[in-house]
Write a protein that binds this DNA or RNA. Structure first.
Length: 347
DNA sequence: ACCTGTCAAGTCTGG
DNA sequence: CCAGACTTGACAGGT
């Protein structure tokens, strides 16, 4: 099983490379010239896209193929008071440049719209904002020229005291999304509300791939279901990406969308609890032990998987994990570290 | 250079 | 019904 590792948003190694520079509405509204303010927002966005490209080049150099872009590329992009502003035309070249680099080097990128995007909400205005935010993320991916393998990962949302009706509402409201948006969405199990098995159920019904977060599963798993017992079904939610995660020969070269280079393995998230007292918070680094236990459990049935590391120390935690995995390899663990941020695990 | 309160957005809990 | 917690990187305004 080939395992590729990725990280989120920013680098601890690259200096002055924030892809999330912003401007607050308080500052914007104090500017004397609104048009000049909008141009300033666009300049900040250009800088964020430029730094995203720098991060991608850093990833290329370090052989990191999996990366989650920040949602804050364009400051105030979906703010109510700026609804007349169309930020995309001025940024078209920058988006194309970033997307071109991603395609050229066959990287896997995603977005994770933050928790204000709630498709299970009973409030129409919250749903409308969520759709607007999803549209914003998908528009950025489209401007990068990336196909449906570039996804937006979201949570199912709140439960409002009744998981059943919240899940039904999610499915109904998910069904109302434009195809171009719905086809990009992946669903992640939550650390408080929808568990892995509940999210899986919803993923199957919505036809959206599921991202299994092992940390969330560890802290929100009332029935004590082992993650690997759910894995066969979770992997199948990725079927339409031509690599169902269960057969080496899945996908056909006759279908260009399923050509080997275009397949997309299932993805999981990993992070380590900060402390016993604060088990939901993310630690600086990742403990390899629980991750390796899971990977060894599924290695026999899964040809490839991507692992997104969600630790405070970002790419630094990824590189440290690789070092620790090298030590495990040296001590006889059934794994082989490949170039940079990937490895092969044998069952 | 460094510190602290605040930020556009939602939901949940406790009062 | 409302305030505060949750969580995050970075601004904004201060020293």
């Amino acid at each position: 099983m080939i395992v590729r590792f990725g990280y989120v948003a920013m680098s601890m190694e690259l200096e002055n490379a924030s892809p999330s520079r912003t401007m607050t509405m308080a500052t914007f509204s104090k500017l004397p010239d609104r048009e000049a303010g909008l141009r300033r927002l666009e300049r900040i966005a250009e800088e964020n896209l430029h730094n995203t490209l720098r991060l991608l080049k850093h990833n290329r150099y370090m052989d990191v193929q999996v990366y989650r872009m920040t949602s804050k590329l364009i400051p105030l992009a979906t703010h109510e008071l700026l609804s007349d502003w169309n930020p995309y035309p001025a940024l078209a070249d920058r988006f194309a440049e970033v997307g071109g680099f991603i395609r050229e080097h066959q990287m896997r990128v995603s977005f994770h719209p933050d928790h204000f995007t709630v498709l299970s909400t009973p409030r129409p205005e919250v749903y409308a904002h969520s759709v607007k935010d999803l549209n914003h993320h998908v528009t950025m991916l489209e401007m990068m020229g990336l196909d449906e393998r570039a996804t937006c990962n979201v949570h199912v949302g709140g439960t409002y005291g009744n998981k059943e009706t919240a899940a039904d509402r999610f499915l109904r409201q998910f069904g109302q999304l434009e195809e171009r948006i719905a086809r990009r969405i992946t669903l992640e199990n939550d650390d408080k509300t929808f568990t892995a098995s509940e999210t899986l159920e919803i993923s199957e019904q919505a036809g959206a791939p599921m991202v299994l977060d092992l940390h969330h599963h560890a802290v929100n798993n009332p029935d004590n279901e082992p993650a690997d017992k759910l894995w066969t079904r979770i992997a199948r939610t990725w079927d339409r990406f031509g690599w169902n995660g269960l057969q080496q020969d899945a996908g056909s070269d006759a279908n260009p969308d399923q050509a080997p280079g275009k397949r997309l393995p299932p993805k999981i998230h990993i992070s380590t609890p900060r402390s016993d007292k604060d088990p939901r918070a993310h630690a600086d680094y990742v403990d390899p032990a629980p991750l390796m236990r899971f990977l060894l459990d599924i290695a026999g049935s899964t040809p490839a998987i991507d692992v997104m590391i969600e630790a405070k120390r970002k790419d630094e935690s990824l590189f440290r994990l690789m070092d620790e995995l090298k030590l495990l390899e040296a001590s006889g663990a059934p794994l082989r570290i490949r170039d940079g941020a990937s490895m092969e695990v044998t069952s």
